[in-house]
């Protein structure tokens, strides 16, 4: 699948992030440049502490870089404006985390409705849940769902607003491989059917096979970029 010709959805330049922990300075990002193209599925691979989550948080407007810029659809994000970042998250970004962060007091459908209620052009919650294969679990509470099912509700919640970007931080990290594959299937399907630009963090090299492009992280930098000649289906993977 050739995506080079498509427009750049998100562009980050010279991102530096320094955390101060007491008297120690931690350089989480040491000058990262990255472009995400429309409809692309990018996997960020690297050991823990290499800076990939920090990058994803900055790209998603959850965190501010110490310096550097993020341009979304040709407009630079004002990273110091909490309101701008909030609107950016609200209208353009969908997040999926290792821990599902569902609202325990709401059913699967209601968890998704939480987002569709404030979105501009959402799909019905039941449709989003059907896309992740949970069309028959609409009225279950999180405590009544398995881990894989909860993660898929989280994915449905992230994509129901038809975001421009889907950012997934270790979405299979807490799941066994069989369940993990179901979750990856759902992510891939969204990427293809909705054309959602997707970035996915993992430390599991096998998962990189499903991507268009793989960014290798080490010590706060992208050390290597690899383009996959072809995407493999999650069902072909094993770990």
């Amino acid at each position: 699948m050739e995506k080079d010709a498509s427009a750049t959805a998100l562009q980050a330049r010279d991102l530096i992030k320094i955390y101060r922990m007491g008297t120690v300075e931690v350089h989480a990002l040491r000058g990262v440049d990255v472009d995400l193209r429309d409809g692309e599925l990018v996997v960020l691979l690297g050991p823990s502490g290499s800076g990939k989550s920090t990058l994803l948080n900055i790209l998603g407007g959850l965190d501010r870089p110490t310096s550097g810029s993020v341009v979304f659809r040709d407009r630079e994000l004002d990273m110091n404006n909490a309101r701008t970042l909030n609107l950016y998250r609200r209208n353009h970004v969908g997040f999926v985390f290792q821990f599902y962060n569902l609202i325990p007091s709401l059913t699967a459908r209601e968890n998704v409705a939480l987002v569709t209620e404030i979105a501009r052009d959402p799909m019905p919650p039941s449709e989003a849940l059907a896309m992740v294969g949970l069309g028959d679990r609409l009225d279950r509470f999180p405590a009544q769902l398995s881990g894989g099912e909860q993660q898929r509700v989280a994915i449905a919640r992230a994509i129901a607003k038809r975001p421009d970007l889907l950012l997934c931080d270790e979405p299979t990290g807490a799941l066994d491989s069989k369940t993990g594959i179901l979750v990856l299937d759902a992510i891939l399907r969204i990427n293809r059917e909705l054309g959602t630009t997707t970035a996915l963090i993992t430390h599991n090299a096998v998962i990189a096979e499903i991507a268009n492009r793989v960014l290798y992280f080490a010590d706060g930098r992208i050390v290597e970029t690899r383009r996959n000649s072809g995407q493999r289906a999650p069902s072909e993977l094993a770990w």
């Binding site: 959850l62 909030n86 609107l87 998250r89 997040f95 609202i103 939480l114 919640r157």
Partner: peptide, 10 residues
């Protein structure tokens, strides 16, 4: 929960 909602754009 509240942090989750903030992430979701609330």
């Amino acid at each position: 929960e509240l942090a989750t909602l903030r992430v979701l754009g609330f």
